[in-house]
Write a protein that binds this DNA or RNA. Structure first.
Length: 578
DNA sequence: GCCGTTTTCGGCCCGACTGTTTTCAGTCG
């Protein structure tokens, strides 16, 4: 039997946390389970293996009790406490706690006092007016629950938009506000500033002595459709794209405090405040209160907040409580878009792209790239415009001819080859050997079970002519779950063969994600940051992969295409010995 | 349930908002 994945073990801990919360455990115990779940989910190695090696308590937040529970799960496939709690608290009650305005206490009372144990029963109780009879609930509560249930029915997933769409709105807002005389400073905050995969709203922080003028200017921006809840502290608006926008306004002397607070993450801020308390300091968006003197320090700039706490400044992308507040932390030099010298994944009209070879080459050159691999789809793509082996021979010649014509950029003849369900590739080796760059990707049968899917990808990794694995998990943010591939096994294999793994910059891919990319780099895997552009304008999509890489703590040395082609070419797997 | 310049017990971030409330618990970010 295969080991359970980290995400499977994390899900068990999260469920235990939810159930203990319903069971009335003190909040700190619940938080302990959730912290442990986070540590397991983000662990760079197999947690199941750590458990078997007796090393799992090395993870932050895992102690003897949770080690025991995890070991029991590995040995028996079950956790007795979990089974008992599941019996005591029906799944429907847990689901109720996910509705807005319903937490564990209220869910528990709905169950205990009205016998409600499903979402359907909750709806019926609200519609018949039985909920308002409960102390602490009123008509407003009933209406809110019904609204929450309706929203649940309409949208199974929370409304989130990918980062580029959110940043487009946010950057327009900030640019517009900066033109206002009343605005001293304006910055994007929140999860968008941290560069996460998808966001549910946008936060903007403004420094000003004249909040009224700022709110008026905000409401007048052409990207803003409507505003509500305006006041001196800020306003809540809705962009025409449907994205909610929170504007917060603060006096310039406390701008750093509010920007730090609203940038988050919540987990980062909680850890930051815990560390501050040990120094007798209390951090909030209003300043830093010193127990000893009773004085509050205001910080005009964000770095002052970290300095006042005796901490190294933390770049926004790293603020996830993944070790960035540990003793001895010094911000690593993170990879930047300008460090990238080439792009190794793009398409042209030869397959499903919208630009010619030359158009893509010129656009990449204008972005400052020194080389560009043309990697059209292979022979069994299934979406039309397939490149047969004969067509690929002609295409290679066309790329090499274009390389002669276009000055200032090196064009590489490549292909994005399909990894077939059995792990084989859909071009012959003698053809692949003629290419400068081969990226192998899964485009079909994405829902295979974990073991065959992993075996499929491992076979491709071990193919000596495969340079890189494209979008390794196949996820589409908000639309398609990652495939069942065991990414840890994939990383181990790539570390052995020297095969590169992509961080694909298509806005809805960003695949590998930040957690896996960090894990890969930590185990010596070489990563490439690519655009997967399908037209000249989307070559800029490397930007999104750079953000994922930064969230993965990667520096220029972790990313192979910060090298020139003359250095990268001999480093391809096909030249490795052994 | 975890953890330690408060180390094996006694703490565990901070503030705003909401609705229902006569002083605040629960929820949220």
């Amino acid at each position: 039997m295969a080991d359970p994945t980290n995400s499977e073990l994390a899900a068990i801990l999260d469920e235990l946390g939810d159930l203990y919360e319903l069971d009335g455990a003190i909040v700190h115990r619940v938080v302990a389970y959730r912290n442990a779940a986070k540590a397991v989910r983000e662990a760079p190695v197999s947690v199941a293996r750590l458990v078997r090696d007796g090393r799992v308590t090395e993870l932050p937040g895992i102690g003897a009790t949770l080690e025991e529970k995890l070991a029991t799960y590995l040995a028996t496939g079950a956790v007795p406490a979990l089974e008992r709690l599941r019996t005591a608290h029906p799944a429907g009650v847990v689901a109720m706690t996910k509705l807005p305005g319903i937490g564990p206490r209220r869910a528990r009372r709905l169950h205990d006092e009205l016998g409600i144990d499903t979402l359907d029963a909750l709806r019926a109780a609200c519609e018949s007016g039985r909920v308002r009879g409960l102390a602490g609930f009123g008509e407003r509560a009933e209406a809110r629950i019904l609204a929450g249930l309706d929203a649940e029915d309409e949208r199974p997933r929370s409304v989130r938009v990918t980062l580029p769409a959110a940043l487009d709105v946010a950057e327009r807002i900030v640019a517009g506000l900066r033109r206002e005389p009343a605005v001293a400073r304006a910055e994007i905050a929140g999860s968008a500033r941290r560069g996460v995969d998808a966001v549910k709203d946008v936060d903007v922080v403004v420094a000003s002595e004249d909040p009224g003028a700022v709110v008026a200017a905000f409401a007048a921006l052409d990207v803003i459709a409507a505003t509500e809840a305006s006041g001196d502290g800020g306003a809540r608006g809705l962009a025409h794209t449907g994205l909610p926008v929170d504007l917060r306004i603060v006096a310039p002397e406390a701008f750093g405090n509010l920007l730090q607070h609203l940038t988050g993450s919540k987990e980062h801020n909680v850890r930051l405040r815990e560390m501050a308390v040990r120094r007798g300091l209390h951090v909030s968006e209003h300043g830093i209160l010193d127990d000893a003197t009773g004085e509050t320090t205001l910080c005009a700039d964000e770095p002052e907040v970290y300095a006042r706490l005796g901490l190294a400044y933390v770049p926004a992308e790293l603020r996830e409580d993944r070790g960035e507040l540990d003793a001895g932390f010094a911000a690593p030099a993170l990879v930047e878009l300008a460090d990238l010298r080439g792009d190794l994944h793009c398409h042209t009209v030869a397959s499903d792209g919208r630009g010619t070879i030359e158009e893509m080459a010129v656009a990449a050159r204008e972005l400052g790239r020194e080389y560009l691999a043309i990697t059209d789809h292979s022979a069994s793509h299934g979406f039309g415009n397939e490149v047969s082996p004969e067509a690929l021979v002609r295409h290679m010649a066309a790329v090499r001819a274009a390389d002669e014509r276009v000055e200032g950029i090196r064009l590489l003849a490549g292909s994005e080859v399909n990894i077939l369900p059995d792990g084989s590739l859909d071009y012959d080796d003698d053809l692949l050997a003629q290419l400068d760059w081969v990226v192998a990707s899964v485009h079909s049968s994405l829902r295979m079970e974990s073991e065959p899917m992993t075996a499929r990808l491992l076979r491709a990794v071990r193919h000596p002519l495969v340079d890189a694995i494209g979008h390794p998990t196949g996820r589409l943010i908000g639309r398609r779950r990652p495939s069942a591939v065991d990414v840890e096994a994939l990383i181990d294999a790539a570390a052995q063969t020297g095969t590169f793994l992509e961080i694909n910059g298509a806005p809805d891919r960003r695949d590998l994600d930040d957690v896996h990319a960090r894990s890969a780099a930590a185990r010596g895997v070489r990563l490439v940051i690519v655009s997967d552009a399908h037209r000249p304008a989307t070559l800029v999509n490397q930007r999104w992969a750079v953000l994922s890489a930064r969230r993965a703590w990667l520096g220029p040395a972790d990313v192979a295409n910060t090298l020139g082609w003359e250095a990268l070419e001999p480093a391809r797997p096909r030249h490795r010995v052994g």
